[in-house]
């Protein structure tokens, strides 16, 4: 996890273009819009990359794709400014060419597919690295967007990155989080997409003044596309799922009693008694190797 600060790209000529994709988040308890947890971590990763490389070697921009324009001072605006407060001068709103166009169908909650917008925009801007959160906090939150981007751009996507160790113009070396706190080192050919989940380092606080100062600039690209499938989804507050009951399959009263009253039972464990410490230790090592926990 020790990032090799010295090896980060220093190509004075062409800075590394990094784009951080950010979305609107929602507080799980209050339900208010805020910066999304994973996207903020993604931005944090980009800021860390910027900091650890030479000045001017990384040019970072943050994009938010939206189906409509966002009014100054609206709840969305406030939420997006949370990202600006992390130390950005500006945030780009990627909107469709005709954002105000009427929805295709009269539906209660029109859902706009933003990935075609982003694909168009990314093809134009051609950054080397795109960093985003793994799953959105509003709407379906399917976690499909990075995959769709990667698939339509033909770029590689790696999930669950926790640190970018080095990045030259052609390759990226990063650490990927595995379950149980393990890490794996990956080398990815650029241009690439990187997604971040909650294993990544926590995002810094958002500074209020910086958030006020920062600028949201709108950039129209691509056509408005409706997600007709998602508009038909039935949405309900999450129902609590029942816990699975422990089913006891006993054929006799004695087995049932044992199952109900059982405590530690002499399982078919192997038992080494009266052996020397060396033999015992060797046997334990053998088991640890079989289980693959010893490296």
């Amino acid at each position: 996890m020790k990032a090799d600060r010295s090896s980060v790209a220093q190509q004075a000529s062409a800075p590394l273009e990094v784009v951080s994709l950010v979305s609107l988040g929602q507080h799980p308890v209050s339900g208010r819009l805020r910066r999304a947890e994973q996207d903020a971590r993604a931005l944090e990763l980009c800021l860390a990359l910027e900091r650890q490389s030479a000045p001017g070697a990384v040019s970072l921009s943050a994009w938010h794709a939206s189906g409509s324009e966002i009014a100054l001072g609206s709840e969305q605006d406030q939420a997006l400014r949370g990202y600006l407060g992390m130390g950005l001068e500006s945030l780009t709103l990627v909107t469709p060419n005709a954002p105000g166009a009427a929805p295709l169908k009269a539906v209660d909650q029109p859902v706009v597919d933003v990935w075609p917008l982003l694909v168009t925009r990314l093809k134009q801007a051609a950054p080397q690295l795109v960093v985003c959160g793994g799953q959105g906090e509003t709407g379906e939150g399917s976690g499909l967007l990075p995959h769709l981007l990667a698939e339509s751009l033909g770029w590689p996507l790696v999930e669950g990155i926790v640190a970018i160790e080095s990045c030259d113009g052609a390759h990226l070396t990063a650490l990927q989080a595995l379950p149980r706190g393990q890490r794996r080192r990956l080398r990815v050919k650029l241009p690439a997409l990187v997604s971040v989940d909650s294993a990544a380092p926590a995002a810094r606080q958002s500074a209020f003044a910086q958030a006020r100062r920062g600028e949201l600039s709108t950039l129209a690209s691509g056509e408005l596309v409706h997600d007709a499938q998602a508009e038909t989804f039935g949405v309900a507050p999450a129902r609590k799922r029942p816990k699975r009951l422990k089913r006891i399959k006993a054929t006799s009263a004695r087995d049932r009693f044992k199952a109900a009253a059982a405590k530690a039972e002499g399982g078919g464990g192997k038992r080494l008694e009266g052996v020397s410490a060396e033999e015992g230790a060797a046997e334990i090592l053998k088991l640890l190797r079989e289980e693959g926990v010893l490296r």
């Binding site: 405590k263 399982g267 038992r271 008694e273 052996v275 410490a277 230790a281 334990i284 088991l287």
Partner: peptide, 28 residues
């Protein structure tokens, strides 16, 4: 050898912990 942990275990080594850990370290 009669304690509950040994009953639960998949592999139990009956002996002095200090000696077994030391031998484990040595072998590794």
């Amino acid at each position: 050898g009669g304690c509950d942990m040994v009953k639960r275990a998949d592999l139990s080594v009956i002996g002095d912990a200090g000696a077994i850990l030391a031998s484990l370290c040595q072998q590794l």
